[in-house]
């Protein structure tokens, strides 16, 4: 087995959105990893844990002059790599604010990165940008159009953010732009609207539909981020676990009760709940309970040499408190290392 050489340090990294789940998990990981140095956390709020070597700067990406300030900040800390994770994790009712946070925040970030000597930009997106549609093939590759725009304003903003990143790459061909699209992230610490959906004792489903779903383990997502931080890999990559599970089975494994509702009632009910300030997602997201949105991770394996440790089913078990034991995880990690060496 080839051990990574001690000299291979990656330094001068900035992470935005470090109070969100993905940003904070990544920050925590890099903070305790000796291979990373000079880490900058950019967020309005303080990270939810004590930092060892990283530095936190209170910063608001949607302020009018955020781009100039951010460019100055990048200059000051000699930032070479930026990980953009300051995106919404769940739909909010205030569409204007959502647009500001996602689209405008990204615009400011990219403008600053263009002005400062930033070499690499990494975006934390999601496979949801493909959208769940009846005419999706069983496996979506990176060449497939991100059609989430057609589903909901929340996903529309996400797609727009990706487009901004890809345009930036065209404009600045010498810089490296990477878009990572993880599937639904599950694991022992994750907490978002999708995990809430599975944590209710009763889980509404679309009657007569039982789509296959796909997850990815939080530790695997972090490993994928570390891969693209250490080496330059421009392009879009799906980050997904192997295997799929029917939704009904997920609900069963979690020990919840499915409540099948005819789709004719499901959409109006979800709309009502959304506008009544009770529902978590707008009605369009019910497409995800009916149709497939499963991505193919082959490209990440070929280009990044990234292979998930957990399968979709193991990810679900880990979320459910029955994770793999440490020995097994190290064994699999070594196996993957050997395969890539």
């Amino acid at each position: 087995m080839r051990k990574p050489s001690k000299a291979a340090h990656t330094s001068n990294i900035a992470i935005t959105g470090t109070s969100g789940f993905l940003g904070s998990t990544l920050l925590k990981n890099l903070d305790s990893n000796p291979r990373f140095r000079n880490i900058l956390a950019i967020d309005r709020k303080q990270p939810p844990f004590k930092l060892k070597k990283a530095k936190w700067v209170s910063f608001d990406l949607i302020e009018g002059d955020a781009d100039q300030k951010l460019a100055a900040l990048f200059e000051k800390y000699k930032t070479k790599t930026v990980v953009h994770a300051a995106l919404l994790t769940q739909p909010i009712r205030n569409l204007e604010e959502a647009h500001e946070v996602q689209s405008v925040g990204t615009m400011h970030l990219l403008n600053a990165a263009a002005a400062a000597p930033v070499h690499k930009l990494i975006l934390a997106s999601t496979t949801d940008v493909y959208g769940a549609f009846p005419d999706n093939p069983n496996f979506l590759t990176e060449e497939h159009l991100a059609r989430g725009t057609l589903l909901s304003p929340f996903l529309k903003d996400k797609v727009e953010v990706e487009e901004q990143f890809l345009k930036f790459q065209k404009k600045h061909p010498t810089k490296v732009v990477t878009v990572l699209r993880p599937a639904t992230i599950l694991g022992p610490t994750v907490n978002n609207f999708k995990t809430h959906f599975f944590q209710n004792p009763l889980v509404p489903t679309a009657m007569g539909f039982d789509p296959l779903v796909q997850f990815v383990h939080e530790s695997d997502v972090i490993r994928a981020f570390i891969k693209v931080l250490e080496k330059d890999h421009p392009g879009i990559f799906n980050v997904v676990a192997e295997g799929v599970i029917p939704l009904s089975r997920v609900i069963h494994i979690l020990g919840k009760m499915p409540v099948p509702i005819p789709t004719v009632f499901l959409y109006p009910a979800a709309d009502f709940l959304w506008y009544a300030n009770i529902g978590v997602v707008p009605a369009e997201h019910i497409h995800f309970l009916k149709y497939l949105c499963i991505a193919d991770g082959t490209k990440a394996w070929h280009k990044l040499k990234f292979k998930p440790v957990h399968t979709t089913l193991e990810t679900l078990h880990s979320f459910n408190g029955r994770g793999l034991d440490k020995k097994e995880i190290t064994r699999r990690l070594e196996e993957i290392e050997d395969a890539t060496a």
């Binding site: 039982d210 296959l212 295997g243 799929v244 599970i245 029917p246 009904s248 089975r249 069963h252 494994i253 499915p258 099948p260 089913l313």
Partner: peptide, 12 residues
């Protein structure tokens, strides 16, 4: 409803 309640490890 339960995708076959008996066997937890069964996969598609």
């Amino acid at each position: 409803l339960w995708s076959g309640a008996d066997d937890l490890e069964r996969e598609v």
